[in-house]
Design a protein around this nucleic acid. Structure first.
Length: 271
DNA sequence: CTTTACGCCTGACGGC
DNA sequence: TGCCGTCAGGCGTAAA
């Protein structure tokens, strides 16, 4: 489900509910998620939320200076705001219950998501320490991509989806950004010019920020914390458009599996 | 070091 | 109606 814009949308939904509130109780109904939920997470109980932020696709709930909770939505996870007395639905695996009785409830059919505790500073956590820059930060530039790509022979699509290079570019937006930049997804990352990487960095920034403005992309089941879908799907240029005409040149769009993932592109517009 | 393949899961869908 | 194969938005890990 969620790529960076969907995680950002989720963050913006839960932040106003959580900020300044105390987490009274953690209710774990099913701890067998991506990793077994550790007992450490119960440190959160009785602590006040000092802030919420996002690093890559991890949601970080800061609980004072010591540390906090780390939530990952995996491929099918979502958070919604509800009342603690609302009956849990299928796949509702855990709740963050607030003093007010409101709760933030995690639902995840495939259970690729997770819940963990982090100790300050979060950046030192093993899941975060090796990550590349945020795509919407100043450190993410065409020059940066060009430098990191020298000598790399793998497909550029895999390169931009590698979290050690840049975080948050998932399968949908990788296809979209490569189309926008006119770069063929199979081109070797090390054989793309600095000028073209400038266009690619710009395309990545552009597609991600536009998707955030639309509340994310809902293809099958993504809902934000209010239960509403995202509206970026109607702006997708190539993703899941195999066999349909390219909006730019009219030729038929192709699909190919690259690195185990479906990739969509135009053979005319992307070289 | 880079690159590739594999699972972890449930659910939806198409073909028979 | 059921069964089976395929596919799905992530990502850490192992192996080459």
């Amino acid at each position: 489900m969620p790529e960076l814009p969907e995680v950002e949308t989720t963050l913006r939904g839960i932040e106003p509910v959580l900020a300044g509130c105390t987490i009274e109780q953690l209710v774990i109904r099913n701890s067998s998620l991506r990793w077994p939920v550790s007992e450490e997470v119960f440190q959160a109980e009785g602590r006040r939320v000092s802030g919420c932020r996002r690093r890559a696709k991890y949601l970080l709930i800061e609980l004072g200076g010591a540390g906090g909770l780390m939530i990952h939505l995996g491929m099918s996870g979502s958070l919604r705001i509800c009342d603690m007395n609302d009956a849990p639905r299928k796949h509702d695996h855990y709740d963050l219950v607030l003093e007010s009785g409101k709760c933030v409830r995690f639902n995840d059919p495939r259970r690729f998501g997770s819940l963990a505790w982090w100790n300050h500073p979060a950046e030192d956590h093993p899941l975060l320490s090796h990550l590349g820059p945020e795509p919407l930060s100043a450190g993410f530039t065409g020059t940066y991509l060009w430098t990191r790509s020298r000598g790399r022979r793998g497909a550029v699509k895999n390169f931009i989806m590698d979290g050690k290079i840049v975080v948050g570019v998932g399968n949908i937006y990788a296809s979209e950004a490569l189309f926008m930049a006119g770069i063929h997804p199979l081109r070797a990352a090390g054989r793309i010019s600095a000028v073209r990487y400038e266009a690619l960095a710009q395309a990545i920034r552009d597609v991600l920020s536009r998707a955030i403005r639309r509340g994310g992309t809902t293809l099958r089941d993504f809902l934000n914390s209010d239960g509403n879908p995202g509206y970026f799907a109607q702006e997708l240029l190539v993703y899941e458009r195999e066999g349909q005409p390219c909006f730019q040149c009219g030729s038929i769009l192709k699909r190919k599996v690259i690195g185990q993932r479906s990739s969509y592109y135009c053979t005319q517009c992307q070289r």
